[in-house]
Amino acid sequence: MAHKAATLDDCAPGTVLARAKAILLDSDGTLVDSTRSVEASWDKLLGDEGAGRFEKHYHGQPGRRVLRLAIPDISEERLEELFNRVEGYEIASASDVEAFDGTARFLSELEKAKAALSRECWAIATSCTRPLFEARYRPLSLPFPSVLVTADQVTHGKPDPEPYLLAAERLGVEAKDCLVVEDAPGGLESARAAGAFVVSVLNSAGEGTVGPLADLVIPSLADVSIEAREGELVLLAR
């Protein structure tokens, strides 16, 4: 029987959806809406290279992996040249990025939970490099993570589990005791492979696409809240 994720259907406000020692968050497509910037930047690059357009399944994967998928015979030297060019496009268009509804409140709740627990309890693991993440995230004045894993800090990016395993390790917990919030198949595969409880938001893909890869599907972070209870984090329906 195919895996079927739980949903918020028939969940009253305050219903406990999951418990975890820590929460690991994707950024693009989960916390912030960078779709316009990403797709325009990549369409420009790939169009100039005669390599088609940015495809939906590229979302959530590191730029170098996207280049290898889009241009299979690319040399390493050419890959680095094109990667630097497209990242430049994305940084230049970072002003097009906005926080999703619910992001600021949810992150503020995590900061309150961190204070209540007296320990670090959340992290961001993104397929961006550090410079690109900061260009998109800092202008939004969102709580900045004390633990941040970017694509330039790992050997194998999403859909490999390494980003989430490293984020959990830096928080001092095991990935199996974490809850991951993601939006794209590549990130969801990464989280599942790490052994975490996987929550998918529907910001960039439909339930039919993400449902088989998630334990719980929610419309967005605006539909849930997080708080500290008895030494752990509790995810609640709103």
Rank of each mutant, 00 (worst) to 15 (best):
P131W: 06
D215Q: 07
L45Y: 12
D215A: 03
P72I: 00
V154S: 04
L166N: 02
R68T: 07
G231K: 08
L142P: 12
L166V: 11
V234H: 11
I71K: 12
N203F: 05
K176G: 05
A228K: 13
L166W: 01
R78I: 00
H59L: 07
G211N: 14
I23T: 10
V147P: 08
C178W: 10
A167Y: 05
V198Q: 07
W122N: 04
E169I: 00
V210M: 04
T155D: 11
L165Q: 15
L24Q: 08
P139T: 04
A214M: 06
V181L: 03
A99F: 08
G187V: 04
A22F: 09
S127W: 07
V199H: 13
D183N: 14
R192M: 03
A191R: 12
R170P: 06
L46H: 13
E49D: 01
R53L: 01
R229E: 15
L166E: 15
N203I: 00
V66S: 04
G231V: 03
H59V: 00
V173K: 04
D183E: 06
P72Y: 03
R192D: 06
A228T: 08
S108I: 00
V180Y: 09
S220P: 10
F106V: 00
L17T: 10
L179P: 12
P13I: 00
D26Q: 08
L24W: 11
Y164C: 00
A237R: 15
G187A: 02
W122E: 02
K44T: 15
E232D: 07
A99P: 13
V66F: 10
V198S: 05
S141Y: 05
D160R: 03
D223C: 06
G157R: 04
D96M: 14
S108C: 03
L79C: 13
A115S: 13
S27V: 00
A228C: 04
F100M: 02
F100P: 12
G206W: 07
A125S: 13
G50Y: 09
R130S: 03
T7W: 13
K158S: 02
L79M: 15
